[in-house]
């Protein structure tokens, strides 16, 4: 069971990182979107390894089945052919990339210094049957106010999107 988990982790991790790299480097946006979907699905697999089954479902339904469909929809509405022939990276790409790597180096250093200090507790033999209930309990009792704020955020975003679309029509 341990080796199976290990193998699954390596599989999902490699898949996620490889498709993330491909996503950032592809010229064709649709291919990029497909690679991002692959990354998101492998992340969902990692959530499952971490016994967060409800989040696995949220990731698949909301992220992959909702948000990414929106992305693909918009990609198909805008004209691909022109932007595919243009230069893909901006002029400051060298500076920007170097800065990103420096940032990554800092994080890497922090994790490296503290490595081995944090360990996952012994895994239960199977996924806890109460995960969905536990998340719902926390969401609707302790995190009630943030939950309501999040719903207002969604409402505002919805109105914003509608306003944006209206202006285009008028």
């Amino acid at each position: 069971m341990q080796t199976l988990n290990q193998a699954l982790f390596i599989f999902f991790a490699v898949l996620a990182v490889a498709s993330a790299i491909l996503m950032v480097t592809r010229r064709n946006i649709v291919h990029g979107a497909v690679f991002l979907i692959t990354t998101l699905l492998s992340t969902a697999g990692i959530f499952l390894l971490l016994q967060a089954e409800f989040l696995f479902i949220v990731q698949v339904i909301l992220y992959v089945g909702g948000i990414m469909v929106l992305f693909v929809f918009v990609i198909m509405l805008v004209n691909l052919d022109v932007s595919m022939r243009q230069v893909q990276f901006n002029r400051q790409w060298f500076v920007a990339g170097a800065l990103a790597l420096v940032l990554a180096g800092q994080f890497l250093f922090a994790i490296w210094v503290g490595r081995g200090a944090l360990r996952l507790p012994a895994m239960a033999s199977e996924i806890s049957p109460k995960n969905t209930e536990a998340v719902a309990d926390a969401l609707f009792s302790h995190y009630m106010l943030p939950f309501e704020i999040a719903s207002i955020l969604l409402l505002v975003a919805m109105i914003g999107a509608v306003v944006m679309a209206k202006r285009r029509a008028g």
Binding site: M23, V24, T43, F71, A100
Partner: peptide, 19 residues
């Protein structure tokens, strides 16, 4: 960290807003 860094590089270096 790896995914985060790739994401940051993508935001900072690509020209395409969708990417």
């Amino acid at each position: 960290l790896a995914l985060f860094t790739i994401g940051v590089i993508g935001v900072l270096t690509r020209r395409n807003v969708i990417i």
